[in-house]
Amino acid sequence: MSLIAERLRAIRPSETKAMTARAAELREQGIDVITLSQGERDFDTPAAVCEAGIRAIRGGRTKYTAVAGIKPLRQAIRESFSCDHGLDYALDQITVGCGAKQVVFNALFASLDPGDEVVIPTPCWVSYPDMVALAGGKPVLVACDELDGFKLRPEALEAAITPQTKWLMLNSPCNPTGAVYSRSELLALAAVLRRHAQIYVLSDDIYEKLTYDADFATMAAVAPDLYGRTLTVNGVSKADAMTGWRVGYGAGPLPLIEAMNLIQGQTSSHTSSISQYAANEALSGGRDHIDEFVRAFLERRDLVISKLNQADGLSCRVPDGAFYVFPSCAGVIGKRTPGGKVIETDADFAMYLLDAFAVAVVPGSGFMASPYIRISYASSLADLTRACDRIIAACAGLS
């Protein structure tokens, strides 16, 4: 009898975490590695949010909280949904978890039975398929062409649906592509979903506040008749530079939220009380810092796009949101490194960039799309300039 559960055989370590760990190892050896592999901005958490966390500690707010989260935070989340999107949720329709990642996992674990299918447009975040599999479901990956902006077409959604389909997962703005679904694009998908009453929508909006050339829209607001079939997930990690605080939240049908709370109550119980008070400040204390973040990201995005499109063999479209670019590296496949190694895959290219030029990126294969690489531009302009110059040199060195 094996100690390790059979269900873990199909689960892979996160490629983003693996590349970041490898970069850290090289850095410990004294190598000047520039890490563009992690979805974490270089900005500090706003001072007012940090002070709210400190006040929570000094005020003795360090005890257990309700599984679903403290009431003031859920009220702030409710007001945010209402003000931003006109969505009305009761407090018991809102749950707070240890990051949006846990909220997504809780939803899948609470709802999937063996054989249930989840439609996932690809390229997608590395964890989606594995979370579905861990919850006992079957991920159904639907490739979205770069010519379509890496976005799911209604006809492709229709073709992927079977009687076993339970969820459609949508991530907009998307990690890794930065694609943003417009209102009209969501309405087209909603028209398909109306023909299949058994399907629920998991709308992962964690990058909502980080859009540049497109307006943000979310399914429950765009298609009010699907409100009761939609779980909307968000959090403070990306918009408020609070990745390490681990606060995400979801709002949706009451039976689902109750089931998610049941799971959370038997696993993590709740997210940190201190983090919850800090997140309450982030949501209710004014978010003027977001405009500054967006301006900085826009400048960085444009720099990276301009640089990468100078690299021989790379082609990079302009993303509308998040803080990633997803350039095609098809033009370097089949070429040889100065050491004679053939670049056969995007993973080979990513390792070449890391080992020979000390730049850490993530191969597109980790996001179910090849041959691409994902580059995070959540770093300083100086580091991005140096990294892109190294990538240009790396491409020039191939033959």
Rank of each mutant, 00 (worst) to 15 (best):
Val104Tyr: 01
Ala90Met: 05
Cys83Asp: 15
Asn106Lys: 00
Tyr64Asp: 15
Gln93Met: 13
Val96Ile: 14
Pro114Phe: 06
Gly99Leu: 08
Ser82Asp: 15
Val103Trp: 00
Gly99Glu: 12
Ile94Asp: 10
Ala100Arg: 01
Phe81Gln: 13
Ile70Trp: 04
Ile77Leu: 08
Ser111Tyr: 01
Ser80Met: 13
Lys63Pro: 01
Gly97Cys: 12
Ala66Thr: 04
Leu91Phe: 01
Val103Asp: 04
Ala76Ser: 14
Phe109Asn: 04
Leu87Met: 12
Ser82Thr: 12
Asp92Ala: 07
Val119His: 02
Cys83Trp: 03
Asp84Thr: 14
Asp116Cys: 07
Lys63His: 10
Val104Ser: 03
Ala100Gln: 12
Pro121Tyr: 04
Asp116Val: 02
Ile120Glu: 06
Gly115Ser: 09
Glu117Cys: 06
Ala76Gly: 09
Arg74Phe: 03
Gly97Val: 05
Leu112Glu: 14
Val67Thr: 15
Gln75Val: 13
Val119Tyr: 02
Val118Gly: 03
Ser82Asn: 14
Leu73Trp: 05
Val103Arg: 00
Asp88Gly: 07
Glu117Phe: 07
Gln75Lys: 08
Leu73Tyr: 07
Ile70Tyr: 06
Ser111Lys: 03
Thr62Pro: 06
Asp113Trp: 03
Thr95Gly: 14
Ala90Gly: 13
Glu117Met: 07
Asn106Glu: 11
Arg78Leu: 05
Ala66Asn: 10
Gly115Thr: 11
Val118Glu: 09
Leu91Val: 02
Ala76Met: 06
Ala66Met: 06
Ala100Phe: 06
His85Glu: 15
Leu108Gly: 00
Val103Glu: 02
Leu112Arg: 04
Arg61Glu: 13
Ala66Phe: 01
Lys101Ile: 14
Leu112Ile: 12
Gly69Ile: 01
Val118Gln: 07
Gly69Pro: 07
Thr62Ser: 10
Asp88Asn: 14
Ile94His: 08
Arg74Leu: 04
Ile94Tyr: 10
Thr62Arg: 09
Lys63Met: 09
Val119Ser: 05
Ala76Val: 07
His85Cys: 14
Val104Gln: 06
Thr65His: 00
Tyr64Val: 08
Arg78Gln: 15
Arg78Gly: 13
Ile70Arg: 10
Pro114Lys: 02
Ala110Asn: 08
Ala107Pro: 03
Gly97Ile: 05
Pro72Ser: 03
Ala90Glu: 15
Glu117Pro: 09
Gln102Asp: 13
Val96Trp: 03
His85Thr: 14
Val67Ser: 07
Pro72Cys: 08
Gly69Lys: 01
Ala100Asn: 12
Gly99Gln: 05
Asp88Arg: 11
Tyr64Leu: 13
Ile77Ala: 10
Gly99Ser: 15
Leu108Ile: 01
Val67Phe: 00
Tyr64Gly: 12
Gly115Met: 10
Gly69Val: 03
Lys71His: 09
Pro72Thr: 01
Val118Ser: 06
Lys101Glu: 15
Ala68Arg: 11
Cys83Leu: 13
Thr65Ser: 11
Glu117Thr: 09
Asp88Glu: 15
